[in-house]
Amino acid sequence: MRILAPLAVLLAALSFSAPAAWSLDKPTGPVILTVKGKLATPNVGETAQFDLAMLEKLAGRTGTMKTPWTEGETQFSGPLVRSVLTAAGAKGNVLLVRAINDYFATVPAEDAIKHDTILATRANGKLMSVRDKGPLFLIYPFDLEPALYNEAYFSRSVWQIKEIEVQP
């Protein structure tokens, strides 16, 4: 709730990023995600930093599904992990997904490429606060691939994400 992106900022981000498809724009709003590691297109120092507008501009998906952490069906939407990685020009096989409280999970890059895994920004259309596991929640496509619905993937489903470190 604290990272509410003003409409103006969002529009600005859209207009600025449109012509530069090969390079990553600098974030204009509060940074909610930092991608580290070997990057082809970093925008802040050696890292790629994203605000909400930048993330919501990327190719994403919306899926309605059951998760162990929500009551009933919940609609999650947000950018695909692979589009985030592409935007950052990230190369690597392992993703260290780190949360605000420094909890992290090791996620194979494969999970982002093979599956339509997203960094959910919204649950039921609403932005997620930190109290509600926001601002970013790694959501596997449990609706498309029920086989993923098990503890192995649950442990990779990191919420309150603040950083992804791409490792070789």
Partner: peptide
């Protein structure tokens, strides 16, 4: 405050998630 939010979310989790 962020720390509080995290604790808050953890507590919420315990109330809502399926264990």
């Amino acid at each position: 405050s962020v720390r509080y939010d995290v604790v808050y979310s953890r507590m919420n989790m315990l109330k809502k998630a399926q264990f």
